[in-house]
Simulated scan of single mutants.
Amino acid sequence: MRAAMYNGPGEIAVEEVPKPALDSPRGALIRVTHTAICGSDLWFYRGESDRETGSAVGHEPMGIVEETGTDVTSLKPGDRVFAPFVISCGRCEFCRRGLHTSCTNGGSWGGENGGGQGEYVRVPEADGTLVRVPDRYANDEETLKSILPLTDVMGTGHHAAVNAGVGEGDTCVVVGDGAVGLCGVLAARRLGAKQIVAMGHHEDRLSLAAEFGATETVAERGEAGVKRARELTGGGTDHVLECVGAASAMETAIDICRPGGTVGYVGVPHGVEEAGLDVFSLFSDNISLCGGVAPVRAYADDLLADVLDGTLDPSPIFTKTVDLDGVSEGYRAMDEREEIKVLVRIDDHSE
């Protein structure tokens, strides 16, 4: 089979690799039809985080069940499914608490399971990981495009909103205009926020944020951006969604948060330790930080129901579609901020 492989900073190549084989009674083999490139993939692409060269990449697969283990009860060959970016068993104490990212039997995509940007993936815990798409939507391309963000960015944006405590009638600020931040706007609207201020540096993305439900947008940077966000929210807000992970974004989120408020953070931390986090300001103003890596499997069923009934549509975050051979170009386009998020459509499969 073919899969996208990391061969060093700036080098993503589609190569022939062994097709993963089912090796567990709880597992399943999935023929991938759709996947995506994530903003977090850019950290290793840029050489700003460690990754083993020669490793398979990607963590947002959707496809068709080809084979299941003997103990799998919720799926059968031919089912359309999507997989959250973390593998989970669904039965351990953490999965039962909705914290699938801490699953004691879980894992990540890559290595011998095939990665998420390839023609096949092996899922060692099928019942606990995979989400089945109802048959009536299994071949509806527009619906599938709306479902695919549930593998990661929609669930991650929702995690930010939930952890920031956003509820009916609230005011909130979303820091970041990438795919996660834009999905954070959708999530805040879904949870009933009356005022949603989206902060970013790209006018086209902020325009999409407005379409998604942002009531105001802020394009200013640094202190000017903080000042503008405070003006719009009457002195700051109790609910801030940090959807970037960079030290500057976390500082902005904290500066906008009112005493007693909460920052829901989901951006993969980058440069925060080196910059130093001003813990005293959090302490003195009783500001809470709540969040972390999003257990998107915990949210997947509810979000899927909203997508299927037409009340939630994150598909506009996909601004470019490529085939498997176009994955390298997709990485480049996202790295250079030409595109928000790239969808990868995989049609042809080989052994």
Rank of each mutant, 00 (worst) to 15 (best):
T217G: 03
T217D: 04
V218D: 05
V218P: 03
A219L: 14
A219I: 14
A219S: 15
A219T: 11
E220Y: 09
E220N: 13
E220C: 07
E220G: 02
R221E: 14
R221W: 00
R221G: 03
R221L: 12
R221S: 14
R221F: 03
R221H: 09
G222A: 13
E223H: 03
E223Q: 08
A224M: 12
A224P: 01
A224R: 15
G225H: 04
G225V: 07
V226I: 15
V226N: 01
K227W: 03
K227L: 10
K227A: 15
R228C: 08
R228V: 10
R228T: 13
R228K: 15
A229N: 11
A229M: 13
E231S: 13
E231G: 10
E231V: 07
L232G: 09
T233Q: 10
T233L: 09
G234A: 07
G234L: 09
G235A: 14
D238L: 14
D238P: 01
D238I: 00
H239Q: 13
V240Y: 04
V240A: 11
V240C: 12
V240F: 08
V240L: 14
V240K: 05
L241S: 12
E242D: 11
C243Q: 05
C243E: 05
C243T: 09
V244W: 00
V244A: 04
V244F: 01
G245N: 10
G245M: 02
G245C: 10
G245T: 06
G245V: 05
A246G: 09
A246P: 01
A246Y: 03
A246H: 09
A246N: 04
A247S: 14
S248E: 12
A249C: 08
A249G: 10
A249Y: 08
A249E: 00
M250C: 06
E251V: 02
E251I: 02
T252I: 09
A253E: 08
A253H: 03
D255C: 04
D255P: 00
D255G: 06
D255Y: 00
D255N: 12
I256F: 12
I256V: 15
I256D: 07
I256T: 12
I256M: 12
C257Q: 10
R258H: 12
R258K: 14
R258T: 13
R258W: 08
R258I: 08
R258C: 12
P259S: 09
G260A: 08
G260I: 07
G261D: 02
T262E: 11
T262W: 06
V263E: 07
V263C: 05
V263F: 02
V263K: 07
V263N: 02
G264D: 03
G264L: 02
G264A: 10
G264V: 02
Y265R: 00
Y265T: 15
Y265V: 09
V266H: 01
V266Y: 00
G267C: 03
V268W: 10
V268C: 04
V268D: 04
P269L: 06
H270F: 12
H270D: 09
G271H: 08
V272P: 06
E273I: 12
E273L: 13
E273T: 11
E273V: 14
E274Q: 15
A275C: 07
A275F: 06
A275M: 06
A275N: 07
G276A: 02
L277M: 15
L277A: 13
D278Q: 14
D278W: 08
V279T: 13
V279N: 13
